[in-house]
């Protein structure tokens, strides 16, 4: 039932796309079959894998840096009032700085380098991770903390068995919103200053008004992110929430 309705909605989308391309013409909106062929060509030449790989690598590195730093800072701000008061204005500033400004400044200050690109993306994701994790850190259970203290649990045990499980729902939320945010920003970063990646390819296609290639790359990337969500994020979430009593 679930699968069937999803499939139906997907078929509807492709049909609407097909109808749209009939109305707008192949140049403005190429049909599904044209895009599929282009995708196949890019895949055969190896270009697709190369650019997808480059983009995925940037997404992964920037995401991991932002999440690790965001978790540490979020916990710190959530648990210490002083830290919260000190760091909050910075956080608000970062939250409201447009992504484009951060990217351009990173390129201006650090040159058109890989480091600048990664830092720019991570900085864009960071405040959102901090805010989410801080919320979780504020809700930490003091009673469990006391229990850990009385039983002299090591730092590692406290982190792994007391702290992280309590933060898990917040980390999951930050991951969800984070992945989609990060890959969108990575594309802009690549468009503006990298010689490879999906963003770079879309930039070239834009200069040639090659809508087919733009759609081919966009679809390929959405499919990859969908696969990551389905086969990586969701199973992990199920595993960490296995202890929650199931409704009968």
């Amino acid at each position: 039932m679930n699968v069937a309705s999803r499939l139906f909605s997907l078929i509807l989308l492709v049909a609407a796309w097909y109808a749209g391309s009939e109305v707008a013409g192949e140049r403005m909106l190429p049909g599904p079959q044209t895009v599929a062929l282009a995708l196949w060509d890019e895949a055969r030449s190896g270009a697709l894998a190369f650019h997808l790989g480059a983009t995925l690598l940037r997404v992964t590195v920037a995401f991991v840096i932002a999440m690790a730093l965001g978790t540490a800072l979020g916990v710190w701000m959530g648990r210490s009032r002083l830290a919260d008061r000190l760091a909050d204005p910075w956080l608000v500033a970062l939250l409201n700085l447009p992504a484009l400004v951060i990217i351009v400044l990173a390129y201006v200050w650090a040159g058109l380098t890989e480091t600048a690109a990664i830092v720019a993306v991570a900085l864009n994701k960071l405040p959102n991770a901090i805010v989410t994790v801080r919320e979780g850190a504020r809700a930490l259970d003091r009673e469990l903390d006391e229990m850990a203290h009385v039983f002299r649990m090591s730092r590692w045990v406290r982190l792994r068995h007391v702290l992280i499980p309590q933060l898990a729902p917040y980390l999951a939320a930050a991951t969800r919103s984070g992945l989609s945010l990060v890959w969108k920003i990575v594309l802009i970063v690549e468009l503006l200053g990298r010689p490879n990646g999906v963003g770079f390819e879309i930039g070239i296609a834009f200069q040639l008004f090659d809508v087919t290639r733009i759609l081919a790359y966009a679809i390929a990337f959405v499919l990859v992110m969908l696969a990551i969500e389905t086969f990586l994020v969701q199973p992990i979430e199920r595993h960490v929430s296995r202890w929650r009593p199931k409704a009968a």
């Binding site: 006391e146 229990m147 002299r152």
Partner: peptide, 25 residues
């Protein structure tokens, strides 16, 4: 070395009974 039973059980809900005991001891 302390062993404590609090007024409430204070177990880690995300760990099994056995893991709870092993983590404390």
């Amino acid at each position: 070395k302390l062993g404590m039973v609090f007024q409430e059980p204070r177990l880690l809900p995300w760990r099994t009974v056995e893991q709870n005991v092993r983590l404390g001891a």
